[in-house]
């Protein structure tokens, strides 16, 4: 096994474990922390794939901004482990089973195909570098880029509309 492979498996194991813990842990705060771990692990994968820009953005935006926001909210609400009573056992079981089945079905469908054995370019390539991405983003993807400003505007208005206290 090469270093890359060892790193891949290690990060994969970390990501999966943390993901499971996000779902399984009782306390919301723990969940958030585990999720941050997942994000870090995924950023690690990005680095392995030489998608440096995304790796950084992932940490800054996701782990840094978004998850902190989550953390704030959770703490603001003062939610702790006990605040969440048990969900219906059967439902939980059904959820677990159907999620598992979905996984099995997807894997089963994909594992035996020719496509599945294509190799992934690890490390090499410079398309993930910030310069190249910038070129593409502002040349080819300028339209969606501009349009997504509408998205942000509406999200902003939304946050204001929803968050603002109504005068009675």
């Amino acid at each position: 096994m090469s270093i890359t492979e060892i790193l891949f498996w290690g990060l994969a194991a970390l990501a999966l474990f943390s993901a499971v813990m996000v779902v399984a842990s009782k306390s919301p705060v723990h969940s958030i922390l585990y999720l941050i771990v997942v994000f870090f692990a995924i950023s690690g994968h990005y680095i392995l794939l030489n998608a440096q820009f995304l790796a950084i953005v992932n940490i800054i935006v996701y782990a840094g901004a978004i998850m902190v926001l989550f953390l704030f909210v959770v703490m603001l609400m003062n939610l702790n482990a006990e605040s969440e009573p048990k969900k219906h056992r059967m439902l939980q079981f059904a959820g677990l089973i159907s999620g598992g089945c979905l996984f099995l079905v997807l894997i089963a469908a994909l594992s035996e195909t020719a496509q599945a054995t294509s190799l992934v370019q690890m490390g090499g390539g410079n398309s993930g570098l910030i310069k190249n991405l910038g070129m593409v983003l502002f040349k080819d993807y300028v339209l969606p880029f501009e349009i997504s400003s509408v998205l942000f505007l509406s999200a902003m208005i939304g946050a204001v509309v929803i968050g603002k206290k109504e005068r009675s």
């Binding site: 999966l16 779902v23 969900k87 959820g95 677990l96 997807l106």
Partner: peptide, 9 residues
């Protein structure tokens, strides 16, 4: 799928 399971449970 883990995410889905989380949503479900």
């Amino acid at each position: 799928c883990t995410g889905i399971v989380g949503v479900l449970t």
